[in-house]
């Protein structure tokens, strides 16, 4: 059973002001979340171009998470409102192309929500583990 235990690779784009600080807090409070989550710090969740999400999948991600400040709390006032629209459309398109909709997600996590950060990561890793490997948006050249 232990031989081929599948561990998904998760890429989490975290906004510098809230979610990344949330991740920090989770660490400071010794809250566990899987090491398979690779965090990429971005100045604002709005910085995440849809191409970044696709490129993460290309490079081997099994799940992609975009974390930003709660709507209304954006450091730049409105950035995450745009993220919300953009990602709603992108996720809908990915689903339209037959790509599992649970693989990609947006979460709002504030700097004070270390526990939420850890819980979200744990839950997301579990969801993606259940989904299995990303097969529909993979680039075979990047595998192995």
């Amino acid at each position: 059973m232990q031989v081929n235990e599948y561990k998904p690779l998760i890429v989490a784009f975290c906004c510098n002001w809230c979610s990344y600080a949330g991740a920090d807090l989770a660490g400071n409070n010794r809250l566990n979340y899987p090491a398979d989550v690779k965090i990429i710090r971005v100045p604002c969740s709005c910085r995440v171009n849809p191409a970044f999400v696709l490129r993460a999948y290309q490079r081997g991600a099994d799940g992609v998470l975009i974390c930003g400040c709660h709507p209304g709390d954006c450091h730049y006032t409105t950035g995450n409102y745009y993220t919300r629209r953009r990602m709603a459309l992108l996720f809908s398109m990915l689903s339209y192309l037959g790509i599992e909709k649970e693989r990609t997600r947006v979460e709002w996590i504030s700097a004070a929500e270390g526990a939420k950060f850890a819980a979200t990561m744990n839950e997301f890793v579990k969801t993606v583990t259940d989904l299995g490997k990303n097969r529909r948006l993979e680039d075979l050249r990047c595998k192995k």
């Binding site: 490079r59 081997g60 050249r141 990047c142 595998k143 192995k144």
Partner: peptide, 9 residues
């Protein structure tokens, strides 16, 4: 050239 996770094609 394409940079894979394991060398270049």
């Amino acid at each position: 050239d394409f940079k894979t996770n394991d060398g270049v094609i």
